[in-house]
């Protein structure tokens, strides 16, 4: 009986590895990816492949030649970043733009901070925002989704939020814009009819992913739900005050990157708070910032900026929002 293993307790492990968690996230993303393939066809497929290859390659090269350390691309985090980045780009993005975005996302937003778990900002969003600021024209040229069955475009290429933004700037009221664009109803947009980034195509597909993540206990609902609640509340109050200048809750909830952002980007482990209380504060912050940017900002869409801004606050939230501790409750 020689050479038994000795280690401190516990002696068993839950074996719920990072790799498995990342795989679950990828599975949750599958519905929206498939829907985007269906409606945007080859464009979306090429975009996904480009992002995947360039993200993985960037991480591999950095780990191999700059860090000269362990190569951990198999943990799946780079895959998640790649898929999310591709979902955040307009369908007609040229492949070289996608490559630049991937390199920025992995090399600058992730690896310079020390790799997985060390980054302050969500890598995919940094990639997207970098592209949005650097290549504004490319990044705001939207192709309308078209199914394989109909060759007729559902409606013009601009995103619903951009339409509203443009309309309001040129002096029209919200109702005028809606009247001019009959496709702009929440019901329409839920089923793969919204123009915009690849991943904004179908609210239903995103919600399926959300439910999957919740069932598998990969994420907790706090962040997502508090973002939704804040957006509904804020847009509700504003649109009640002046329905001609401000869009309503349902429109805001179902348009743009809000669903994608609130379900998949804001809930990123690395860049979101740990405690429940912190998550709710984080979610409220994103909701408020998103609505402020949408209503008053120069950009029609503000989810990415809102999440990135709130990412910066996470260490502070973590410092002050502690979990509910045992032994500090007053007994009755």
């Amino acid at each position: 009986m020689a050479n038994t293993i000795v280690s401190p307790a516990p002696h068993i492990h839950g074996r719920n590895e990072t790799q498995i968690l990342m795989r679950e996230v990828l599975r949750a993303l599958a519905p929206v990816v498939l829907v985007s393939f269906y409606f945007y066809g080859l464009n979306a497929i090429l975009l996904q492949v480009t992002c995947l290859v360039s993200c993985l390659l960037t991480e591999f090269l950095i780990q191999k030649y700059i860090q000269k350390g362990q190569i951990t691309i198999s943990d799946g985090s780079a895959c998640v970043t790649a898929v999310l980045l591709a979902l955040n780009l307009p369908p007609a993005t040229p492949f070289w733009v996608a490559i630049i975005g991937s390199i920025v996302a992995i090399a600058i937003a992730k690896m310079t901070f020390g790799g997985l778990g060390q980054n302050i900002f969500n890598p995919a969003l940094v990639g997207r925002v970098f592209l949005l600021i650097s290549f504004p024209v490319v990044m705001t040229t939207w192709t309308a989704p078209s199914s394989f069955f109909s060759s007729v475009d559902a409606f013009s290429g601009a995103t619903p939020l951009a339409l509203i933004n443009e309309g309001l700037k040129s002096g029209l009221s919200v109702q005028d814009v809606f009247a001019a664009n009959p496709g702009l109803t929440p019901a329409q947009m839920s089923f793969a009819r919204a123009g915009g980034s690849v991943g904004e195509i179908s609210v239903i597909a995103l919600l399926i992913g959300f439910v999957y993540l919740l069932v598998k206990k990969v994420i907790k609902p706090h962040i997502t739900l508090s973002i939704w609640a804040t957006v509904i509340l804020m847009s509700g109050i504003f649109s009640l005050c002046d329905p001609t200048a401000y869009t309503g809750p349902l429109f805001n909830l179902f348009t743009g990157g809000l669903m994608l952002g609130s379900i998949f980007m804001a809930t990123d482990y690395v860049t979101s708070p740990m405690s429940n209380k912190g998550m709710i504060i984080f979610g409220i912050g994103i909701g408020v910032l998103t609505m402020l940017i949408r209503y008053f900002g120069a950009y029609p869409e503000g989810v990415s900026f809102a999440i990135l801004i709130m990412n910066m606050v996470v260490p502070l939230i973590n410092k002050y929002c502690k979990p509910v501790r045992y032994g500090y409750k007053k007994n009755k």
Binding site: H13, D75, Y269
Partner: peptide
Amino acid sequence: TARMPIGNCIRC
């Protein structure tokens, strides 16, 4: 019982 190689904290 084997312990696996330690990875980075992903702040989950």
